[in-house]
Design a protein around this nucleic acid. Structure first.
Lengths: 337, 337
DNA sequence: CTGAAAGCGCTAACAC
DNA sequence: GTGTTAGCGCTTTCAG
């Protein structure tokens, strides 16, 4: 037997409305009525039908995190893990359910789009967009509120789309400045994927900070993973252009650089200064500990939900941007030296 | 403007029922009517309200994968990735949406349970249970169909619970037998977590295969991760009891063992034979390539959805078990030697 | 093959 | 505070 609000009403000796009121937590219920209803609910094991509620109320009580990274990459990415922690924190004690919508391959994407279209969530958080992400047009076009964690340059954003970002460019500039202050003369850059705006901005910052000294030979693109960082470092070495410092667009790529320096006996920071980007725990465990441009990743996640909830409630949270922060550890020579 | 079935009916010059029929894919619609409706839908951009549908039809058109591993562990686990691939494949072109329900910490668990309770999914797949998982009682108790990927020994399973498993014990036995055939005399075991039934079964198989030769000093528990495999290997070495082979309950732990053998200059397989469990890609990339007990992990994922769909449709798929398969590579001495 | 009619279980004005 | 009354948008008999 599956009970309805009607049954509870009868059992508690009140009307359906009153039951509904205690269900929705309305304050306009007498203590006695409330208790009678709650007892009836407990006795029967009644559970509310959320479709009926959603149909009547127009709310879904669910938000989703749309994950477009292919599984392989996603599951390895500490940034995404941090984001999730933040999202959880931001959700706090809200009734809102949190769904993860995988959209890493075509099949998943079709499913995810269908889910969006069916309006089964009140809003979504879209993680670190790639500009060529096949699902992006749909996301831009949908009328469900979406908070994007990352930049969408050159795209006109409708009222249902807000971004939360970090100062990628300034972060890159601070990295280069630090290296220069530490005596580096030729600074290489292991950049991120070419189609992610954040990575592009870091490259721009790097280039701007270097000005005249910019040398395209010292730039190699990776995809944020450790393996790609290792490959990039090898490529830099192979090219033969000398350099005494590397600015990596992710901590994981910096870890890849370390693999090569270890193999080749290149000393960090004596022979080569290295700086990462992210501020993940992993950088602290490297030997030497990695100097890095930290981004407040959990804060981003937390802000993303809060902004989303705002949008769902009809208030515009605007776009938000957070500063990065240089964390100096052992992979760069202390400025004081 | 958001259209309803009513609007479409008017536009297409048919009744609501007819519109509904084309929406549900009923064959009892004339080609003309169908086309008129489809045109109206296209013109208006009509999208169906799935809550209304669910309320009327009693189906959710969504299944979830319940993930109880904490993020850290989850996102690192190739087994889970394989399971997801299988689930996706199994879902095929069904309308069913696939949700990931995170239940890795208390907060997430409360949310997940609430979601189950609200019956917003038709069923769920529950990954690799730990016996002390705080969410397990809820899962066992709920009336939504659940397929468990793994054993639940000693637990009476209701009609809404089915398991899909592999022959862990037999796999372990085959591993030990292979090592023995390869000349190993003292076989150590890096076991998995004590509270996971699968790992327990592998230990039992190991012990059974060894019989008289079983020596508790040669068993160390890890948690399936590479780091724990490394620690376990060090522990084994520290204990001082000699051994010439290690059977690891996961490929990742075997990779951890490799770290130690590399450091210490222990040659694999000459000084020490190593065998893993899982059959993940990573084992093939190790040097030497890892002999392992492969489990058909994607098949498991695929079967899990199929079983779940069966249950949702009211037919009992029964429990299913799949065999493991020994894959001999370079980390054990060929039997022929 | 099609339409009319009766809900699915709940929320939300609106009166009292 | 509480009950009454309309729906929310769809599916699904049941006649025809």
């Amino acid at each position: 037997m599956t009970y309805t609000i009607q049954d509870i009403a009868k059992l508690a000796g009140v009307s359906r409305s009153t039951v509904s009121r205690v269900l929705t937590g309305s304050p306009k219920v007498s203590p006695e009525a409330r208790e009678a209803v709650q007892r009836a609910i407990k006795e029967t094991g009644y559970r509310l039908n959320s479709h009926a509620r959603s149909l009547a109320s127009g709310r879904n009580e669910a938000v989703a995190v749309l994950v477009t990274q292919p599984g392989e990459e996603l599951f390895d990415d500490p940034t995404i893990r941090g984001l999730f922690r933040g999202v959880n924190a931001g959700l706090g004690d809200l009734e809102e359910a949190l769904l993860v919508l995988l959209a890493g391959n075509e099949q998943e994407q079709r499913r995810a789009v269908r889910f969006l279209d069916k309006r089964r969530i009140d809003g979504a958080i879209y993680l670190s967009p790639h500009l060529n992400d096949p699902i992006l047009p749909t996301v831009l076009d949908t009328d469900v509120p979406i908070v994007v964690c990352g930049y969408l340059p050159g795209i006109r954003l409708g009222s249902t789309l807000r971004t939360v970002t970090i100062t990628d460019k300034e972060g890159a500039i601070s990295a280069v400045a630090h290296l220069q202050a530490c005596g580096a003369n030729r600074i290489a850059h292991v950049a991120g994927p070419e189609d992610t705006p954040g990575s592009a901005l870091r490259l721009v910052g790097y280039q701007e900070a270097l000005g005249e000294d910019f040398d395209p030979d010292l730039v190699v693109h990776g995809d944020y993973t450790q393996a790609s960082g290792k490959a990039a470092m090898q490529e830099l070495l192979d090219r033969g252009a000398p350099f005494d410092a590397v600015f990596c667009a992710s901590d994981r790529m910096a870890a890849g650089v370390y693999q090569v320096t270890n193999e080749k006996g290149i000393r960090v920071p004596e022979d080569l200064q290295v700086i990462g980007f992210d501020g993940h725990l992993l950088g602290r465990k490297l030997e030497p500990p990695l100097t890095t441009v930290a981004q407040p990743i959990e804060v981003i996640g937390q802000q993303a939900v809060e902004m989303l909830i705002d949008m769902i409630n009809g208030t515009d949270p605007g776009h938000r941007e957070f500063p990065t922060k240089l964390i100096v550890r052992g992979s760069t020579r202390s400025v004081a030296d």
